[in-house]
Computed example of a mutant assay.
Amino acid sequence: MTFLLIFTGLICFIGLIVTVIYVNIVDQNYSSEKSFRNLSWIYLLLIPIAILIVIGLAYVFLS
């Protein structure tokens, strides 16, 4: 169980790092809509993948 909590924390930390890196990129053609859309795609992809991995690991370790 501790492993799952550490793994989940790691996934959240990676998401935070990706967000900070992506937000700090200077773009001459900056568009808040473009930035929001790109960050939305990152989270829409990472959250379900992270949930599936955590569920899969929980199934493996707790069964």
Rank of each mutant, 00 (worst) to 15 (best):
M1G: 11
T2P: 03
T2V: 15
F3Q: 07
F3A: 15
F3I: 15
L4C: 03
L5C: 09
L5T: 07
L5R: 08
L5S: 13
L5P: 01
I6K: 08
G9A: 07
L10F: 11
L10N: 05
L10K: 07
I11H: 00
I11Y: 01
I11P: 01
C12P: 02
F13Y: 11
I14R: 03
I14A: 10
I14F: 06
I17A: 12
V18D: 05
T19L: 11
T19C: 08
T19A: 08
T19P: 00
T19W: 04
Y22F: 15
V23S: 07
N24Q: 12
I25L: 13
V26K: 15
V26M: 10
V26G: 05
D27F: 07
D27Q: 12
Q28V: 10
Q28E: 12
Q28N: 12
Q28Y: 12
Q28H: 11
N29S: 14
Y30V: 07
Y30D: 06
S31T: 06
S31M: 04
S32G: 15
E33G: 13
E33S: 10
K34P: 01
S35C: 14
F36S: 14
R37P: 02
R37V: 12
N38F: 08
L39W: 01
L39M: 13
L39F: 03
W41E: 14
W41R: 15
I42E: 04
I42W: 05
I42V: 13
L44H: 04
L44F: 08
L45G: 14
L45H: 05
L45D: 04
L46D: 03
L46T: 13
L46P: 00
I47N: 03
P48Y: 01
P48I: 04
I49S: 04
A50M: 05
A50Y: 02
A50N: 04
A50W: 01
I51V: 10
I51G: 02
L52E: 00
L52C: 04
I53A: 05
I53Y: 01
V54K: 00
V54W: 01
I55Y: 00
I55N: 00
G56T: 03
L57A: 10
L57G: 00
A58F: 05
A58C: 06
A58M: 05
Y59A: 11
Y59C: 14
Y59T: 09
V60R: 09
V60Q: 14
V60C: 07
F61G: 07
F61I: 10
L62C: 07
S63V: 15
S63E: 12
